[in-house]
């Protein structure tokens, strides 16, 4: 409560966004919760050291691994961090060109976040496969960029879907959005048109109407949303648009990718010589043991997962560091 007071003060005085301050609150309370859940373990090194490790891992985006779903979606930073972790862990799949099904991607996500809900994976799959044939296989990069959009802008996309469905059903979306005067005037005609083409509903809705509704939605949306200009740009391209093709275009939009800032551009998605080297080393180690090649890459991915430190892990790591008195060698000794 006292924190909330200070935070309000901060919001008042500082030009930092409210969202950032809410994030700070999330991290402070999570840090304390984690501390209480692992009291004995963490207090050996001192509470201050614990907080230092916790916030450093948040800063370095290492904090979301193996955490519960509610935590990884709690702040924009957590979402971006999770997207990045997902990419870094399974990049190898994209490299090998494997196509995976929705359920397989779900399993991969659940390795990183045990209670990751299937609904988000389903929505992502609909973006990639345009709603039909949901059991088709998907390439890693298609899935990744769609997943990024779906996971990062979840709440916004849900609202857009409601608007879209209302428009499609010929209902006025006024219940969802605060209408501008122009949209009120235009809506009846749109609705009439829509009803005329009953059989062609798959064609989607009038792009300009959707654009207007989305614009109004952005005005009052408290969560983050993709940049308006990108959405306008995409909606201007066609007269009619359907929800999932709109989302697919958004997912592929480089500006949106840059805004989220978790992934490199699509061309550079699979380029990371440093990690390749590490993986080669790991695979070389594993291939000595009698396991097949395909499982080798999966284990490699997992090793990569374990190398990234969660706050909890950091403490273990720290202990190791302190016990042998060196700071830099620990990483290489782990390999």
């Amino acid at each position: 409560m006292i924190t909330a007071g200070y935070i309000c003060l901060a919001v008042d005085r500082v030009t930092v966004s409210t969202q950032t301050m809410i994030s700070v609150l999330v991290y402070l309370s999570d840090a304390v919760t984690q501390l209480l859940e692992h009291k004995e373990e963490y207090t050996q090194f001192g509470v201050i050291r614990y907080f230092a490790e916790y916030f450093s891992s948040v800063k370095n985006s290492n904090h979301v691994l193996f955490r519960e779903y509610n935590y990884i979606r709690a702040t924009p930073h957590n979402r971006a961090s999770f997207i990045r972790v997902f990419w870094r862990c399974y990049r190898q799949i994209g490299k090998s060109g494997d196509l995976l099904s929705m359920l397989e991607y779900r399993s991969l996500l659940q390795l990183l976040c045990p209670d990751f809900p299937v609904e988000v994976v389903q929505s992502t799959t609909r973006i990639v496969l345009m709603e039909d044939a949901i059991d088709c296989l998907m390439s890693f990069s298609d899935f990744l960029f769609a997943f990024q959009l779906q996971f990062y802008y979840q709440e916004f996309l849900d609202s857009v879907l409601v608007i879209y469905q209302d428009l499609l059903a010929g209902k006025s979306p006024n219940t969802v959005i605060v209408p501008t005067s122009t949209s009120i005037e235009q809506l009846p005609s749109v609705v009439a048109e829509e009803n005329d083409k009953d059989g062609q509903q798959q064609d989607g809705v009038e792009s300009s109407t959707l654009a207007q509704c989305i614009d109004a939605l952005c005005d009052r949306f408290k969560h983050s949303h993709p940049s308006r200009s990108c959405m306008k740009e995409i909606l201007h391209e066609t007269d009619k648009v359907c929800y999932y093709s709109f989302l697919m275009n958004l997912a592929k939009h480089e500006t949106i990718n840059q805004t989220i800032g978790a992934l490199p551009s699509k061309d550079e998605l699979l380029i990371d010589p440093e990690m390749d080297q590490e993986l080669d080393k790991l695979i070389a180690q594993i291939s000595v043991s009698p396991s097949s090649n395909s499982s080798g890459s999966a284990v490699g991915g997992l090793k990569e997962v374990q190398r990234k430190a969660s706050p909890r892990r950091n403490i273990h790591h720290r202990r190791k560091v302190e016990s042998d008195g060196s700071t830099e060698e620990t990483d290489s000794s782990e390999n």
């Binding site: 950032t20 994030s23 700070v24 201050i48 916790y54 916030f55 800063k59 930073h77």
Partner: peptide, 12 residues
């Protein structure tokens, strides 16, 4: 603020 808190606690 997160970076700040990280630095602050590390310093402490």
């Amino acid at each position: 603020p997160i970076g700040f808190l990280a630095d602050h606690f590390c310093n402490l």
